[in-house]
Amino acid sequence: MLSMRHLSKAYHTDTIKTQALQPFDLTIEQGEFVAIIGPSGSGKTTFLNITGLLEDFCEGSYELDGVNVEHLSDKAKSKLRNEKVGFIFQSFNLIPELTLYDNVDMPLRYRKLSSKERHERIMDALGKVGLASRRDHYPAQLSGGQQQRVAIARAIAGKPSFLLADEPTGNLDSKMAEGIMALLEDINAQGTSIVMVTHDPNQAARAQRVIEIRDGILSEGKRIEKAIA
């Protein structure tokens, strides 16, 4: 479970304070599929970064799976992020010099697992996204959709509680996007919570819950009906 209380975020320069996120309360239960929508610059990515412990917040409190993250050291936050959170990015963020196997291996390396267990998890994750047979290929040898599948495999290999996806289909055509969405729904169905930033109302409609961020203000959005499409 993820719980944020009176949490806010502001950026400061010498003279200007920009309130990126106004104070808000939010709870996301285990197994939920939440879509984050809102216009560009509204604070969606900031919200996702704070949720994934990549950025600090200014005020309030945040508990991730029962752990208060406020006073954690960088090392402890990294460990928590490694164990609880998986990231999926719009531009896939695969390392081009590494094979698919090594890309998926990356988060597992920081968890000090045995090589046997890492191998099993990597092959399992690559199998779930249908790319086990291409484990020795490099990202450049794959299509965009396949690259995003590898990124998803990397995110789920560590068996995280939450998947944080920042416009995961933003760089894909509609057919590939549909494949990725179906994969995310499968993963969610197996109990992993998903928080997905999207501009696409059709994808937001597939989430169980929608949160809208506008000018840094979070509000529980209405459930978007698929009929919009």
């Binding site: 090392k75 992020r81 490694n82 990231f87 963020n93 390392i95 990356m106 920081y110």
Partner: peptide, 16 residues
Amino acid sequence: TGEVGLRRAVGASKQD
């Protein structure tokens, strides 16, 4: 720096 950002995102600490 991009790779560093990614590794940090997947759980690498600064020490790593």
